[in-house]
Computed example of a mutant assay.
Amino acid sequence: MKLQEKILTAAKETISTEAKAIANLENLLDDEFVSAVEKIYRSKGRLIVTGVGKSAVIATKIVATLNSTGTPAIFMHAADAIHGDLGTIQKDDLVLCISKSGNSPEIKVLIPLIKNFNNPLLAITGDKGSFLGKEADFVLNSYVEKEACPNNLAPTTSTTAQLVIGDAIAVCLLKLKKFSRKDFAKYHPGGSLGKKLYLRVRDITSQNEKPLVKPESSVSEVIIEISEKMLGVTAVIENDEIIGVITDGDIRRMLKDNKEFKGLTARDIMSKNPRLISQDALAVDALELIEDNKITQLLAIDDEIGGKYAGVVHLHNLIREGIL
C-alpha cells in the first residue's frame, strides 16, 4: 500500500470509529443525565470541572464552553487539587469529575476529599462500575467500545465522547436558561464572532461618506458624487425621502446604451425601490441581504427619524470588519 493510501485509510478508520461511538452515546442517555443537568441548572454555585491527563484537557474545553454560554464554571486539575486547589470548591458549588476508567490513582485520592466537602459530585466516565462511578451522585455514561488508536491505548474516541457529553450538557443548560444571541454577545465581544453578534449597521455607516443627489441632478453630477464618496453608489433623494439609487454599474450601463447623456438626469437612470436596511440591524443581517440580492451596497435608514436616509453600508466594509 502506498503512503498516501495508508494515510487516507488510517484517517477514515479514525473518523469512522469515533463517529460510531458518538452516535451510540444517544443510547446511553438516561434519567441520570436529566437529573444531573437539572442539578446544575438549579445550582446557586459554580460547576467545578476536574480531571487528569487527557481528561483534564477536555475538562478545560468544557469549562470554556459552559462559561461562554452562561453557566459559571472553573477548571481544577485533579493532581493540583490535593496540593491546595481544593480551596477552589465553595459551599454551593457542584463538582464534575471526568475520567475514562474512573479508577486512576489521582481520582481515587481526590474523590473522598471532595465527598468530605458535601458538594454534589457528578461524573463523566466510561465505567459506571468504577470507583468514580460508584461514588458519584450522578453518572453520565461516556462508554466507548474502543479507541481509534490501533493499540487501543491512546485516548482518542474516549476523549471525543467526553467532549460531546460536555457539549450536550452546555446546550441543554443554554436552552433551559433561554440564552439568547444578545446574551451570547456579552461573553463574546472580541473577534469576528463578537462582531457578528453586536456590530450594527450604524457602526459602519458612521465611518462612510453619505452620497446623495437630487432627481434633477445631471449625470455628470451623479458621476462626481459617486466618485468623490468612493462607495460606488449614491442615493437619490426627493423631499427627504429615498426615491431611488444609482450605482457605478448603472452608470456603465447608461454609457453603453446612450452615446449622448447631456440631457439625462438622475431620475432617468436610477433604480427605483432600492434595498434598504435599518441602522439598528446587525451588520451580519446586512451581509445576508447583500448576498441574497447579489449586490454590493445597501442604503441604510434611521427608524428613529421616520426612515430617513442615513448612509451606505458596502460589502467591503463587512469584509474589513471580519463579518464575511
Results as ranks from 00 to 15, higher is better:
residue 316 H to W: 15
residue 218 S to Y: 00
residue 82 I to A: 08
residue 193 L to S: 02
residue 170 A to Q: 10
residue 320 R to I: 06
residue 282 L to S: 02
residue 85 D to H: 11
residue 74 I to N: 14
residue 219 V to F: 05
residue 119 N to D: 14
residue 57 V to T: 13
residue 271 S to K: 14
residue 83 H to L: 04
residue 252 R to H: 00
residue 45 G to F: 03
residue 217 S to F: 09
residue 141 N to W: 02
residue 211 P to R: 04
residue 36 A to V: 09
residue 47 L to S: 10
residue 283 A to S: 13
residue 201 V to Y: 00
residue 20 K to M: 08
residue 288 E to A: 15
residue 83 H to T: 12
residue 179 F to A: 10
residue 288 E to V: 15
residue 308 K to C: 11
residue 85 D to A: 04
residue 273 N to M: 06
residue 136 A to Q: 01
residue 95 V to I: 05
residue 257 D to K: 15
residue 317 N to E: 12
residue 293 N to A: 15
residue 260 E to R: 11
residue 122 L to H: 10
residue 27 N to E: 15
residue 2 K to Y: 10
residue 182 K to M: 09
residue 55 S to E: 11
residue 264 L to H: 02
residue 141 N to C: 06
residue 304 E to V: 12
residue 255 L to F: 13
residue 257 D to Q: 07
residue 307 G to K: 03
residue 284 V to K: 07
residue 135 E to K: 08
residue 150 P to Y: 05
residue 246 I to Y: 06
residue 270 M to N: 01
residue 227 S to E: 02
residue 251 I to Y: 10
residue 282 L to E: 04
residue 201 V to H: 00
residue 167 D to W: 05
residue 87 G to T: 07
residue 176 L to W: 09
residue 216 E to M: 14
residue 126 G to Q: 00
residue 118 N to P: 02
residue 124 I to E: 07
residue 322 G to T: 09
residue 236 V to W: 01
residue 189 P to C: 06
residue 54 K to P: 13
residue 160 T to Y: 05
residue 213 V to T: 10
residue 181 R to H: 13
residue 181 R to Y: 06
residue 96 L to T: 00
residue 12 K to S: 13
residue 46 R to G: 11
residue 154 A to V: 15
residue 163 L to C: 00
residue 63 V to A: 07
residue 180 S to E: 05
residue 246 I to N: 00
residue 275 R to Q: 14
residue 259 K to C: 06
residue 121 L to E: 11
residue 307 G to T: 07
residue 131 F to E: 07
residue 230 M to V: 12
residue 55 S to I: 10
residue 163 L to D: 01
residue 226 I to Y: 05
residue 58 I to W: 13
residue 291 E to G: 03
residue 285 D to A: 14
residue 256 K to W: 11
residue 102 G to S: 15
residue 101 S to W: 11
residue 59 A to W: 03
residue 140 L to F: 03
residue 216 E to F: 13
residue 12 K to G: 07
residue 94 L to E: 04
residue 11 A to P: 02
residue 16 S to F: 12
residue 229 K to L: 02
residue 93 D to A: 09
residue 174 L to I: 12
residue 4 Q to F: 10
residue 59 A to N: 12
residue 22 I to M: 05
residue 264 L to M: 09
residue 48 I to H: 13
residue 34 V to Q: 13
residue 56 A to I: 07
residue 9 T to M: 13
residue 237 I to L: 08
residue 302 D to W: 08
residue 131 F to K: 02
residue 164 V to Q: 00
residue 309 Y to S: 06
residue 124 I to D: 01
residue 39 K to C: 15
residue 303 D to T: 11
residue 243 I to S: 06
residue 223 I to A: 04
residue 78 A to Q: 07
residue 195 K to L: 09
residue 218 S to R: 02
residue 318 L to R: 04
residue 269 I to L: 10
residue 230 M to F: 11
residue 128 K to N: 14
residue 289 L to T: 13
residue 308 K to D: 10
residue 113 L to D: 10
residue 260 E to H: 06
residue 256 K to T: 09
residue 242 I to N: 02
residue 46 R to F: 09
residue 281 A to L: 08
residue 83 H to I: 02
residue 169 I to L: 08
residue 323 I to M: 11
residue 237 I to C: 09
residue 285 D to E: 11
residue 31 D to N: 15
residue 120 P to Q: 01
residue 60 T to A: 14
residue 145 E to C: 13
residue 164 V to D: 00
residue 131 F to T: 09
residue 91 K to C: 07
residue 194 G to I: 03
residue 49 V to S: 12
